[in-house]
Write a protein that binds this DNA or RNA. Structure first.
Lengths: 114, 114
DNA sequence: ACTTAATGTTCATTTTATTGAATATGATTT
DNA sequence: AAATCATATTCAATAAAATGAACATTAAGT
C-alpha cells in the first residue's frame, strides 16, 4: 500500500503480533500440504518474495493473496468467520459523526461497547 | 501490491466473494461502533479512500490495515482464529519439492487432504 | 425547504510494494 | 563429497496502491 504508509508504522503491537502468528500458521498449512514456497508462489501467481511476506506476517502484504492462500488450503470458511457482525448492529446503515473525537488507534474502555 | 499484480486478477471467485463479505462485516462493525468512515481513517492513520477499499473488499488492500481495524473493534481474537494449523502438520519444517506440478490455483479433490 | 453531515466517485501525484535476479546458507539425496 | 533442493536475504527497477483534493450524491437534523 504505497504513499505515506504511516498506517503500518503506527499499527499497535498486538496487531503486529497477531499478523506474525498468522503468517506462521499459514506456513504450517503450506508445510502440511507438502508444498514449497515456490509451489505457493506459482499457485498464487505471485513472486516468492511476495508470498514470503505473507508468511513473515508483514502488514504491507495484500489481503487478496492471503485470502487466496487460505482458499488453497481449503480454509475459506475460516475467513468467512472473521470479524463477525456484533449483535448490537442496528439496521440504520448511515452513521452520523461521533461526538467523541477519535483518539486515533486507542480505544478507551468505556468507548468499546462489549 | 504493485508491479504486475496478476495475483489479484487471477484470484478465484470464491475468494473474491469472501473478501466482499468480509468488507461488509467490517462495515457493520464500524456502524455498530457508531463511527464514520472518517473516524476509522483517522484511527487507522490512513485515508478514507484506503479504508473504503477495505469495506469494498478490494483484494489489493493491505493486511495491516484490515488487522488494525479488527483490533479497533476488539476482534483481534477472531484474527487469531484464522487459518488454524491442521492436525496433519508434522514436525518436519523443511519441505522437498512436490512431485506433482502445481496446477496454479486449482486443487484437485485428492490433492486436498481433509 | 434549507443546511449540514456522511458517503461515494474520480483523478493526478507520489510513495512504495512487488518483481526478478543474484547470491548465500542449510538440509537432503546420491 | 558432490550435487540438488529449499529457504533466505539483498537490491535496483517498475507498476500500482495510497493519498488528497475536488465534486456529486444521499440522508439526517433544524
Amino acid at each position: 500500500m504505497p504513499k505515506n504508509s504511516n498506517s503500518i508504522v503506527s499499527a499497535n503491537p498486538e496487531t503486529l503480533k497477531s499478523l506474525e502468528n498468522l503468517g506462521l500458521r499459514i506456513r504450517a498449512n503450506r508445510v502440511a500440504q507438502g508444498w514449497t514456497i515456490k509451489d505457493m508462489a506459482d499457485r498464487l501467481f505471485c513472486s516468492q518474495n511476495t508470498y514470503r511476506a505473507i508468511e513473515a506476517g508483514k502488514p504491507t502484504a495484500s489481503i487478496g493473496i492471503m485470502a487466496n492462500a487460505l482458499w488453497l488450503f481449503g480454509q475459506i470458511d475460516s475467513l468467512n468467520a472473521l470479524a463477525p457482525v456484533p449483535l448490537s448492529a442496528n439496521s440504520t446503515i448511515r452513521v452520523r459523526k461521533s461526538k467523541t473525537k477519535p483518539t486515533a488507534g486507542i480505544i478507551s474502555d468505556d468507548e468499546r461497547n462489549f
